[in-house]
Design a protein around this nucleic acid. Structure first.
Lengths: 194, 194
DNA sequence: TGGCTAATAGGTCAATTGTCCTAGTCGGGC
DNA sequence: GCCCGACTAGGACAATTGACCTATTAGCCA
């Protein structure tokens, strides 16, 4: 097996396990078992557990950048792109009900651990924020773009947390409908002002 | 020192540590050091770590029940009571920016651990939800009371998560203003209909 | 004072953790 | 065929964990 393959497999397995169990609760043994390699072999690819974490965060950053770029391409209007973001809580509903939001739960955990990589993890959150700011700017909300962006981002975190706690699919759907209606109000207000 | 005292001190220290570090990251040694007793003495008061967790959750449940009862007494109108709930994200802003929401982060962590006490932890979340439902019912929102309650509860979770990630006080204040305006809209609509 | 029980201290235990080392295998270039 | 570097396996290591035990003290009651 080529080195790149094993390394990628380790990162993928760690990504899943960090999401499902949390970072500190995932052991080297867990990852090694998932990839089916010996624990010792691990040390060849990653010197420390923190190194794996950094690689996982890098991968998540790249994945999200790809996702946002795709939305930029496939959805022409900014309101449609924002709607894509809103609807991921439905697309990923099953996983969110089981493990919460992968971005939110990681930033929360690393923050509590006061882990050196917490700032890097926050960058994933900031990536979504900045992308949303751009969409609202294109939508024509002017100085309110940042406020609206944080509002939508915070909304997604709240929905994910309650979805995990109560496992209520209807609640998620209602919240999506509700924020889409809010988004439409923001759009029409911006277009009336512009 | 009386037995009740030491036990209470252990629970208080564990409460703080579980909030600041997380449950699984807090060790017996951490709690013992905080209370200034020997590790061995621990076993006399609590047989297992899970037993401490249950005691902490019970304490949090009791604390929140007291808090909600106080709001029931001091605030006459339901909209004022709901506003009390909304404003705790400002009252506890410093701690929330450091550690997130004590209720949300615990339920998320225990859910990932698939811990036996996760349902009990969820009861704190449910306590707030049911209280909010009652307030919205008194407010006269009829069948929408449950939807509104979950909306406010999810809002608080989202604000706490982003407050911790971005440490943006102005964001928190804006969100509070915004949801208070929403609450006022709900109130006037309910009173117009009633 | 003597005795009993609640409470505490300190240490042991096996298990698990992240880290690290060494011996070995494999495959392509000379 | 040989060699060298990439890769892997398996285990050693100290540290930490939750759990558990025993000896000792403190406080109260008779």
């Amino acid at each position: 097996m080529a080195a790149g393959d094993t390394r990628k497999q380790i990162i993928d397995a760690a990504d899943d396990l960090f999401y499902g169990l949390g970072f500190s609760q995932t052991s080297f043994a867990d990852i090694a078992a998932a990839v089916n390699i010996s624990r010792g072999n691990f040390y060849y690819h990653f010197k420390t557990k923190d190194e794996i974490l950094e690689a996982v965060i890098d991968k998540r950053l790249a994945d999200r950048e790809t996702l946002l770029s795709r939305w930029d391409e496939t959805a022409a209007r900014p309101e449609d792109r924002i709607a894509c973001f809103i609807r991921i809580v439905i697309a990923n509903q099953t996983k969110i009900m089981a493990y919460g939001c992968p971005v939110g739960t990681l930033t929360t955990e690393l923050s509590k651990l006061d882990h050196p990589a917490k700032d890097k993890a926050n960058r994933i959150m900031a990536l979504f924020r900045d992308w949303l700011v751009r969409q609202f700017e294109v939508l024509g909300t002017g100085a309110l773009a940042k406020d609206h962006a944080l509002h939508v981002l915070g909304w997604s975190q709240g929905v994910a947390t309650l979805a995990q706690a109560f496992k209520d699919e209807a609640y998620v759907q209602r919240e999506v409908d509700s924020i889409l209606a809010w988004l439409d109000g923001v759009r029409s207000a911006a277009q009336a002002a512009g």
